[in-house]
C-alpha cells in the first residue's frame, strides 16, 4: 500500500488542463520530489492531493483509503500536512500562537470549556505550552517565540511554517517550494533538516525548482510538464531522460540527455 497515490487525476479550469491524467505512487518513508517548468501544474497537483481543489476526474488515495475531494481540514486529521509556495503564516499572531493553531486537531476545548476553564481546557493549554516549547527547540526557533510572524525574516518564516505543519503529527508532509528565496547555505541547512525529518519517520513529498536540492535529496522524482507526467524514477533516470531535458531546455540542446544542474 502506498502512502499517497493518485490515479489518473485531472484538473480542468474551463478549457485549461492544469493537471492531465497524472499517476503517482509515493512509498512510505521515502523522500519524493515533483519537478517541472513553471506552470506545469505542480502546485495544482498538490492542492488536489491536499483537498484544496476538487478533482475534475481521477482518484486520490491516502494510506489506501480513497480521499478524493475530501476538504483540507479532514486531510489534516488523517495525517497529511502541507506548506505553501508563498508562505501562509498568520501574520499578526506570534510564532507561538501560529504553532498553537497546529494543535487544533489534537485538542478539544470548546466555548464552554474556555469560559469555565474546565479541566479539559487546562490540560489542552498545558499540552500546547509543553509541545510548543519542544518543537521550537527542535527547529531552533526558541528565541523567536513571542515575535509577530510578519516581523520575521523569510528564512525564519519558512521554518515556522514547517514547524507548524509538524505539530499536526502527520504521516505525510507536502512541502511546496521550501527552498524558494533561500541562498545556498540556507538551502543546505534545509536539505539537512528535511533529511533529519525523514529519518524521524516522516514521508516527504517536495516540489522544488532547485535541481541540486532535488537531485541530492530525493529517492524518486516525478516530472510534470503542461499538466502531464513525462517521467518518474530515481534521480539518475530523470537526469538522463530526453523528454525531461526537452521540457527544460527545448529541442535544440538535448544532445547528451542534458545536464540537470541549475
Amino acid at each position: 500500500m502506498y502512502i499517497l497515490e493518485s490515479r489518473k487525476v485531472s484538473k480542468h479550469f474551463g478549457g485549461l488542463k492544469a493537471v492531465d491524467q497524472v499517476d503517482m505512487q509515493v512509498e512510505k518513508g521515502e523522500i519524493f520530489g515533483i519537478i517541472g517548468p513553471n506552470g506545469a501544474g505542480k502546485t495544482t497537483f498538490f492542492n488536489l492531493c491536499a483537498g484544496t481543489y476538487p478533482v475534475t476526474s481521477g482518484e486520490i488515495l491516502f494510506n489506501g483509503a480513497n480521499t478524493t475531494n475530501k476538504p483540507p481540514h479532514e486531510m489534516a486529521r488523517l495525517g497529511l500536512a502541507r506548506t505553501f509556495q508563498n508562505i501562509k503564516l498568520f501574520d499578526y499572531m506570534t510564532v507561538e500562537e501560529n504553532i498553537a493553531v497546529g494543535f487544533h486537531i489534537h485538542t478539544r476545548t470548546n466555548v464552554f470549556d474556555a469560559v469555565l476553564h474546565t479541566r479539559r481546557y487546562k490540560n489542552d493549554e498545558a499540552l500546547i505550552r509543553e509541545r510548543t516549547a519542544e518543537i521550537l527547540e527542535f527547529v531552533g526557533l526558541t528565541p523567536y517565540a513571542k515575535v509577530k510572524a510578519s516581523n520575521l525574516s523569510y528564512g525564519i518564516q519558512r521554518k515556522v511554517e514547517i514547524a507548524r505543519a509538524l505539530v499536526l503529527k502527520p504521516s505525510l508532509l507536502l512541502l511546496d517550494e521550501p527552498a524558494a528565496g533561500m541562498n545556498p547555505s540556507e538551502t543546505q541547512e534545509l536539505l539537512t533538516f528535511v533529511r533529519k525529518l525523514n529519518a524521524d519517520g516522516y514521508t516527504i513529498v517536495v516540489i522544488e525548482h532547485d535541481m541540486k536540492f532535488i537531485m541530492n535529496l530525493c529517492d524518486r522524482i516525478l516530472v510534470l510538464n503542461y499538466g502531464k507526467k513525462i517521467c518518474e524514477g530515481t534521480p539518475e533516470v530523470v537526469k538522463n531522460n530526453a523528454a525531461v531535458a526537452e521540457a527544460y531546455f527545448g529541442k535544440g540542446l538535448a544532445v547528451n540527455g542534458g545536464n540537470a544542474d541549475a
Binding site: F13, L16, A18, G39, G41, T43, T44, N47, Y53, Q85
Partner: peptide, 8 residues
C-alpha cells in the same frame, strides 16, 4: 473573486 486559478 476567484482564488482557484491563482496557482494554475
Amino acid at each position: 473573486s476567484r482564488k482557484e486559478a491563482e496557482h494554475a
